[in-house]
């Protein structure tokens, strides 16, 4: 039997900026099962990042329900949300969001610090993870000494080092040329098929979306088609 990692019902999000209301999400229903690889597409401004941030427990919806691994996230405190971000979720951003002037290894270690894991284990798990994404030779490089593709791979290592049940990626290849992008997508494919990692990924490119098992399209805050 498959397990539901994400279950969302009637999610709404409205931004108010200088009195102007932007209804970014207008009732989203979505289910993501363990081991699935989902691509989210849609025009710019359709609410993809907004949805992703709520799924990632970085932001809170105005209305609707959201269960993550069967747990009702809307009921949780700030500390509990932090713990979920730490243990259950892994994030990959378009602009990498690595800690500046911090080595690749220390970047990957950071979530383990907040998980309360000791230095030795942090180190060995982070090294292992960096090797897995093909950066075993770049442990002590600073972000600005790495290429864009390498930086994103550090970000993926950092997202996965806590062994989360879900990887969230907001346009992870948005800042890359097609070759680097293909390399990265191959890595994600491998993680999905070999390790059974559940992935939700936002993209503008059809060929990126084609790699996923399933695709949904967001338009004006609503999920339109799925295949």
């Amino acid at each position: 039997m498959t397990r539901e990692i994400i279950k969302i019902e009637g999610l709404h999000k409205t931004y108010a900026l200088d009195g102007v209301q932007v209804h970014a999400l207008r009732g989203i229903d979505l289910v993501l099962e363990q081991g699935e690889y989902l691509a989210i597409m849609g025009p710019s401004g359709s609410g993809k990042s907004t949805l992703m941030n709520i799924i990632g427990c970085l932001d809170i919806a105005d209305a609707g329900r959201y269960w993550l691994n069967g747990q009702d996230v809307t009921q949780l405190s700030g500390g509990q949300l932090a713990q979920i971000r730490n243990r259950e979720l892994g994030f990959v951003f378009q602009n990498f969001n690595l800690l500046p002037r911090t080595t690749a290894l220390e970047n990957v270690e950071t979530p383990l610090i907040y998980a309360g894991i000791n230095k030795r284990e942090r180190r060995s798990r982070s090294e292992e993870m960096l090797k897995l994404v093909g950066l075993g030779e770049r442990l002590y490089h600073l972000p600005n000494q790495l290429s864009g593709g390498q930086q994103q791979r550090v970000a993926i290592a950092r997202a996965l080092v806590t062994q989360p049940s879900l990887l969230l990626a907001d346009e992870p290849t948005g800042n890359m040329d097609s070759a680097t992008s293909a390399e990265l997508l191959t890595l994600l494919d491998k993680l999905n098929t070999e390790q059974g990692l559940t992935i939700a990924l936002i993209t503008h490119e059809a060929d990126v979306a084609a790699r996923a098992q399933r695709m949904v399209i967001l338009r004006d805050g609503r999920l339109e088609a799925s295949s």
């Binding site: 700030g78 713990q83 730490n86 969001n97 800690l99 950071t110 979530p111 907040y114």
Partner: peptide
């Protein structure tokens, strides 16, 4: 501020 945001995304609690 950005660094703080990144740390929070990675699981840092307020008290951390």
């Amino acid at each position: 501020t950005r660094e703080i945001g990144i740390r929070m995304a990675l699981g840092a609690r307020r008290r951390d």
